[in-house]
Design a protein around this nucleic acid. Sequence first.
DNA 1: TTTTGTGAAGACATTCACAGCG
DNA 2: CGCTGTGAATGTCTTCACAAAA
Lengths: 198, 198
Amino acid sequence: MDGEGLSIVSSATLASRCGFNPAQIRKDLAYFGGFGIRGLGYRVRELRDALRRILGVVRVWRVALVGAGNLGAALLAYQGFVQLGFEIAAVLDKDPARTRLGRMKKTEVLAMEALPEIVRQRDIRIGIIAVPAESAQEVADRLVKAKVSAILNFAPIRLSVPAAVRLRNVDLGLELEGLAYYLTQDKRNARKPLLRGA
Amino acid sequence: MDGEGLSIVSSATLASRCGFNPAQIRKDLAYFGGFGIRGLGYRVRELRDALRRILGVVRVWRVALVGAGNLGAALLAYQGFVQLGFEIAAVLDKDPARTRLGRMKKTEVLAMEALPEIVRQRDIRIGIIAVPAESAQEVADRLVKAKVSAILNFAPIRLSVPAAVRLRNVDLGLELEGLAYYLTQDKRNARKPLLRGA
DNA sequence: TTTTGTGAAGACATTCACAGCG
DNA sequence: CGCTGTGAATGTCTTCACAAAA
């Protein structure tokens, strides 16, 4: 909106732009401290800066990416991260030689053994798991031992980590399943007695 | 569980395995029709089959993947899909020649012009958007025009599509932001007066 | 005026606790 | 007995509606 030259925005506009209810927007923003102006709305820049601060995006978070296969390469190439204040400060792989990115992108791929050292040296706080399901728990354990505070997991498996470690899962298969569920509800697939029986 | 030789499972076991409350498990399963046995639990295979039917995973869903860059390649390589009943029946790209996968994987990359035809021919119902944010809305429009019923969007942008089309978003940046938010709450980053002011 | 911030109402979700059934 | 299925109780989230403020 700042780019569009808007300097003020109302909860109603925000709501319609992102598909929520205006009251929702106000409640949520007010929860963090009420930086709107009655009768007017929210100053766009001020709001943006406040949200950045709240989300913790003012500082740069250094991230360790574990798994340099296709998904790892995609994440490494993903532009969005930088803008949001994330820096992939290290890429590791069980087998650094046989990766999909080699030394392309000028990123050296390290062996897993280097993890504790590199996390400490580069003050890394977040780990991304982009390895197959089989090795995901082991990688998670290593990340925890290396003292990252948060993990973003792309492996389709439920990891167990200490409560103190923030864990977030992105399961691509589950996302598709969610869509499939709604599709089966629709017209075409008749509402057969779904349940019971073979 | 079937693989582990378990033939019966209780809501309590299910709950502890996936981190929910037993009552929650029972409520949710009962909502779809009550296929448990009182005093005993749920028959594992029966439950699995019922869930598959409910989720619509008994049939194979054909998917069109748009965008053959890094992310597209990662999705194409992702094993999990097949097992869940998804088949990437077509890969398209604005510029089929300059893709990250070329003709590797034996998957031919088609030009966008082929979309309507291929969707019809191969009975594709789901589209995956793995293109940069700039072109995502255009791709979405094309998918809608080609009559897919659902879209899984990986571009970091809010798409607008007709209500009849199921839309699901996976925003990698947002996932990280969520983690960052919790990290800022923790010990280290002191709870400075977050709000107001520059 | 206009639009925020917010109690109160309403909707929705989770959990409890127990009747009912195998 | 043991465990499901389910009303009732509790808790949480969303929306309404309006006083307060610019």
